[in-house]
Design a protein around this nucleic acid. Structure first.
Ligand SMILES: NC(=O)c1ccc[n+]([C@@H]2O[C@H](COP(=O)([O-])OP(=O)(O)OC[C@H]3O[C@@H](n4cnc5c(N)ncnc54)[C@H](O)[C@@H]3O)[C@@H](O)[C@H]2O)c1
Ligand SMILES: NC(=O)c1ccc[n+]([C@@H]2O[C@H](COP(=O)([O-])OP(=O)(O)OC[C@H]3O[C@@H](n4cnc5c(N)ncnc54)[C@H](O)[C@@H]3O)[C@@H](O)[C@H]2O)c1
Lengths: 244, 244
DNA sequence: ATGCATTTGTTACGTATTTCACAATTAGCT
DNA sequence: AGCTAATTGTGAAATACGTAACAAATGCAT
């Protein structure tokens, strides 16, 4: 048994090479998004140095991240934007439709169900569940909210492997157990609790309160509001003037 | 100038000691939440070993995290739950009301405005902004949506230092510049883009698509849906049976 | 009061991740 | 074809982070 905060470092198709670090995988998704934008802007090729300039991610980091998978670029030239975009999509398996289910059709869950970014990344939300009888049977965007107790039965049809969990903290573990029993192998958890899952199941936690707390800490050295003194040093894009 | 993915490692009140790693700060927020729950359950004291059992975070890690700040526990006894909870709150500056503003009263923004967890952590949302004239002037929960062009003016009143950014990617940089000009020092960014900010401003990104992509990658070694074979090994809490 | 079982705080160690630095590769130019 | 400027891919060095191990501190039982 395992209690999960981070995803365990397992290699898909365990070969000889060292598995890519999880931070590399996270950045891969960032690169993908960035490359999508570049491709829309008709940019043909890009160098690692230019990636650094535009994203702030160190150029060597970018190259090393890619090196875990294959060779993508041409020395002296750079990377073909469309090619790299598609190859990263293949690595992350966001090049083909992937089914998702969601539990918890509340405030946050409803926002997620209507989020077009999911489709754009080929995540296909196929079912939404709740335990509130006032909600079950009602439509949410293009889906009908279903009884959470039917999740196993319903997922025998869909065979989704990823679930989004957007229920209150107190219910999160209970629902997780249902999801695991329904064959779910990966959970994106929005409740601020650590879930207990078998070690065959991956969990990633999203916690805004945690993020806000970290920001709050970082401000704690500062005066409550530094007035507008700093603003005099800023150009009209809000950036520091005169810095390289 | 700096383009931010992670928060730079600056110590509040730069003294001699090494600054706490950012992962430590993230876990601190997790401990705080956990301690709140324990205090509600009337638990008086807890040992690092028990923290490990209940959260999955290594006991030595827990002790080391705390050691960056002060001594909190008694050897042979453990930690006083309420005391530790409050001292972590002080470290993260979530022991006193902290003003927030939010830009982007869309799907996600609306869910966030109504999120009671904010108040519980003493984050006090004081103003909401949008650029859609159909929304400006309308109420959202207990606030009135204001014109984003007024953000600087309005924040001269409130003097909030933290902003939540929930606008579409294309607008994110533009709005960020307004926020910086309005004296905002920390941004929680939900748009899947890297923001350019002066290095006096902290940014943390929240990206579900990135999280989903990492999960997607981890499943890529597996068969599409591993049927129910695995379920035979699970007890009725969905946990692996017979694993230590 | 002493001894024992427990648990902390911290130093030392090990692993993971990032950054550096450079040989190797490519395209364009003459 | 050979030279040049640009840029990759990658081992090696540097940094950051996590884990283990243990002396010091505490409370409890006798
Ligand atoms: N709203 C936000 O902006 C926000 C932000 C950060 C984190 N979160 C977290 O996300 C989760 C959901 O937040 P929310 O604001 O949407 O809450 P909510 O109360 O609006 O929605 C929760 C939904 O879950 C359903 N639910 C409760 N128990 C259930 C169960 N056992 N099975 C199935 N469904 C069940 C409820 O009926 C409700 O529809 C919470 O854990 C919250 O802490 C929310
Ligand atoms: N909805 C989700 O569940 C979800 C999930 C992940 C990420 N996101 C991200 O969060 C952001 C918001 O998503 P959403 O679904 O709420 O979008 P949305 O379109 O529902 O809302 C965006 C809001 O921002 C406002 N806006 C646009 N330009 C603005 C500007 N220049 N100044 C002020 N306000 C402006 C719009 O009027 C709208 O009200 C997007 O970047 C999206 O990618 C959303």
């Amino acid at each position: 048994m395992m209690i999960v905060g981070e995803v365990p470092n397992v290699t898909p198709s365990s070969n000889g090479k060292p598995p890519p670090p999880v931070p590399t995988l996270e950045r891969l998704a960032t690169y993908h998004r960035f490359l999508v934008d570049l491709s829309h802007a008709q940019v043909e090729t890009i160098s690692s140095a230019e990636v650094e300039r535009q994203t702030g991610i160190n150029a060597a980091q970018f190259r090393k991240d890619l090196s875990y998978f294959a060779q993508f670029g041409k020395p002296g030239v750079g990377y073909n934007v469309v090619d790299l975009r598609d190859r990263i999509a293949r690595i992350l398996k966001i090049d083909q439709d992937q089914k998702l289910i969601l539990v918890g059709a509340g405030n946050l869950g409803s926002a997620l169900v209507g989020y077009p970014g999911l489709k754009e990344h080929r995540f296909n939300l196929v079912a939404v569940f709740d335990n509130n009888y006032g909600k079950i049977g009602r439509p949410l965007w293009n889906l009908e909210i279903m009884d959470v107790t039917r999740v196993k039965e319903v997922n025998q049809q869909h065979r989704a492997r990823i679930a989004i969990l957007a229920v209150p903290s107190v219910s999160a573990q209970m629902v997780t157990d249902l999801l695991v029993a329904a064959g779910i192998r990966a959970i994106l958890n929005f409740a601020p609790v650590m879930l207990r899952v078998p070690d065959t199941v991956f969990v990633r936690n999203v916690s805004f309160l945690q993020e806000l707390s970290v920001l709050s800490y970082h401000l704690s050295a500062d005066p409550p509001f530094d007035g507008l003194s700093i603003l005099r040093e800023l150009d009209d894009h809000g950036n520091m003037a005169e810095t390289d």
